[in-house]
Amino acid sequence: MGDQPLVRWDWIASHLVDPIGTRLLEHLQLSITPILLGLLLALPLGVACVRWRALYPPVFTTVNILYAIPSIALFFLLLPYTSFSAWTAIIPLTVYTLAVLVPNVVDGLNQVPDHVRQAAEAMGFGPLRRLVQVELPVALPVVIAGLRVAAVATISMVSVASLVGLGGLGQLILTEGFRRQFPTPIVVGIVLSVALAFLVDGLLVLLQRWWTPWTPRPARAGGRNRRSAAASTAAASSAADRPAAPEGRRRRA
């Protein structure tokens, strides 16, 4: 890449809408769809796995095996069927989201204290009402913790989808930057995809605060200096916010 400057601001200014903006929107669309689809599928699947215990081991093994297949391989595998439509990216990424979320839904439901479940039964909740009004709401923090992991992983995996020409910020990095030995689009692509991951994660944290105002909060660190207060809040909230995020599922490419 020779002696070009790392970032050429004039290029950024002239390419802000196209390709930068276009690729960003593509990226967003390619990641949000599988996250939402995954959530939509993981809830009933997780509920079923808790209701019929025997279902869980095979489901868990299946999603884990699918999770173990490199995304690039899945993209290529799907190409003959879905060609260059968004589905080629959406289907594998939905499967990955499922793989992260199903164990979290199951753990979340299993963590509902027995006395809470029994109290609900004794108050006269039928099984469906108990699930919707008590068990799922109580499981929600664990589900959202899984959703955060899945969202960040998905956003970073969408970049890989560009290798098979599916668009997104990866496309910016690959075609505008790498192939033309031009560093600016590479930097822009990386920065934007990281920023997007942070943004979505932050939104999910806010969503959690709003949806589950009842979860114990770490005590406010008043009086201490700002840095250590922020550090302790971050430590406490990451402990509280991700009680059951499965190990080793943070990132993949």
Partner: peptide, 20 residues
């Protein structure tokens, strides 16, 4: 059963309150 239970109050050891 559900209707019967709504006409019978029930209190347990850990209170069994709904945390949410």
């Amino acid at each position: 059963p559900a209707e019967l239970r709504r006409s019978i109050g029930y209190v347990i050891q850990q209170a069994g309150l709904f945390p949410h």
